[in-house]
Design a protein around this nucleic acid. Structure first.
Lengths: 156, 156
DNA sequence: CCTTGACCAGAGACTATGTCTCAATTAGGA
DNA sequence: TCCTAATTGAGACATAGTCTCTGGTCAAGG
């Protein structure tokens, strides 16, 4: 069974109808490499309304088929998700995103829970750096995407 | 020396001019409790243009006087910063935000650096939960702000 | 076959959050 | 005081997303 059919099955299981618009959005989303915006999807799915794309993206988020990435310029993009809890390692030079899930935040969370009396429900961790390829071309070499190379404007 | 004068000094040191608009924005920002939006600042600083407020906020971010908080509904708000590296613990019920800096992400970052050959420059961690007060009123008690109680739409 | 009602689509208005442009103003050094 | 570069404010523009409304589709039931 192909990837798109698996996704369609999950949509059906949730009671969503499989329309041609949704199918086109799915096609476009599953064909993406790296991170993308709704606008990217819109451009590659002619004849599907903006609102429909946003609505479908929301469903895909709920199903954990896509997730959002906070880029270092503070903008939120979409990305195909591994489905399970994970975090992102974003190259600040070329925009490449890697997932990692060996996330050892749990002990931190436990400590925090004890110290603050909060009941902790979730966390969100993004890590920024330069990937090996970008480090090798040390001089301000050609970035492979249009990603900016600033440090995160979102850091606290 | 008052807080605002300290900030003004830092602005001057960076070569920024001290105008009455900036002073009004500073007043408003320093008077904020918890997290706020540019709109909150706009409302409390009559006669300062929107663009000016955004420009000033950007300067304040650069100076680490304010930072941004990713709320659990996926929106980014501003917040007075402690100035040093820290993270946020956000109550998903009442919207209260606590800082914490005993951040043990460093070992994770080291492991990640080894495993991925990335040169890691920064990270961004937000934690969501229910604060003690909100846990006590277990029934869907009155939230103290309009914050929604959803789980983060931004989680990966 | 017809009706009904739920779900869905697409257009477009609207909101929120910023950025850009440009003419007018002003801070602050000479 | 004068000069100039920095800054301002208005408003257009950009981006990301939501809401509303009208109309379409489809399945179930009469």
């Amino acid at each position: 069974m192909s990837e798109i059919e698996l996704v369609i099955e999950r949509l059906e299981m949730r009671g969503h109808r499989i329309t041609s618009s949704r199918r086109r959005v799915l096609d476009a989303v599953l064909g993406q490499q790296g991170h993308f915006t709704v606008d990217d999807i819109l451009r590659s799915t002619r004849k599907v309304g903006r609102a429909t794309v946003f609505r479908t993206m929301k469903i895909l988020q709920d199903l954990n088929i896509v997730c959002r990435v906070l880029l270092d310029d503070g903008t939120l993009h979409y990305r195909l998700s591994t489905g399970r809890h994970h975090h992102h390692l974003v190259c600040t030079n070329c925009g490449r995103v890697e997932d990692f899930s060996n996330c050892d935040v749990n002990s931190l969370v436990r400590d925090l829970q004890k110290a603050t009396s909060y009941e902790i429900e979730a966390h969100w961790l993004e890590v920024y750096g330069r990937c090996q390829a970008c480090r090798l071309l040390k001089t301000s070499g050609l970035p492979t995407t249009s990603a900016t190379a600033r440090t995160p404007s979102t850091r606290g």
